[in-house]
Design a protein around this nucleic acid. Structure first.
Lengths: 130, 130
DNA sequence: GCTTGACCCTGTAGGGACTACAGGGTCCAG
DNA sequence: CTGGACCCTGTAGTCCCTACAGGGTCAAGC
């Protein structure tokens, strides 16, 4: 049972963000103590961490909501889950490829810097039009 | 020389976003035709594509501005470039790791789905607190 | 038992990054 | 020479937080 600050720290979010997510129905309402303080469980921690990291990876809140629901939706038919899953998978693959290109340029830059010369800018090239 | 719609298509951005970036000084002002229409070069395309993709990867506009400047800044000393670069590198590594975990869960989900059974939800676990 | 400081609450307003009009000029194919 | 596709400059709205203001709760120490 986490109080709100503990949850915030554990999930890497701000207290205000947690309350905001609750307001828009993204996080289930937590239990309350006698004095009306929010009290969170491991389930809340898992969900909040997921959302924060998905957001950090450039997914929208709607996508962050959709991703876990995708696996939870035993009722929806497999074909739908499959199609949406493939979609997200392509998205993820693209992001990984872009990040790897960026990582390569950053490594080069740092490497050349340590040898005393500043690299010419090829960072823009790393994320160029497909 | 691209008109604004062509640039938007090539870079995967909306026309309004391009004008917004110009307004806040993120994109250099393009040339104009006699009739006052914006006219863009390859340089604009490179820069805009970079920003759009960096944004899609969860970087802020400030970071998207900083990344290329990092490599361009021959005047700033190597130590600074090195430190900032290492910082961004760690950030990028973390994102790659998170995305790989997410990819793994999506693959499993799709795989199990194709075998006819919906997987239990481990997607949230993929981006759990560190 | 009372204060003080860290924590919590519910608002509401502000900021970053777009996005969507409204109201109007340009340009060219038919 | 007109209809439709394109462009312009605003300004207002949306999404996703973030930062107060104004006030209650609680445990530790005097």
């Amino acid at each position: 049972m986490y109080p709100i600050v503990a949850l915030a720290e554990a999930a890497g979010a701000k207290v205000e963000t947690i309350r905001y997510y609750e307001r828009i129905g993204l996080l289930p309402e937590p239990g309350r103590t006698r004095s009306n303080y929010r009290s969170y469980s491991e389930v809340h921690l898992g969900r909040l961490s997921f959302i924060r990291r998905a957001r950090d990876l450039g997914f929208t809140l709607d996508q962050s909501r959709e991703l876990p629901e995708l696996a939870e939706s035993r009722n929806s038919d497999c074909g739908t889950v499959d199609v949406i899953g493939q979609d997200h998978l392509r998205d993820v693959e693209r992001k990984i490829a872009d990040l790897k290109a960026l990582r390569r340029e950053l490594c080069d830059l740092i490497g050349q810097c340590q040898k005393g010369a500043i690299a010419e800018c090829r960072i823009i090239g790393a994320l160029s039009p497909r």
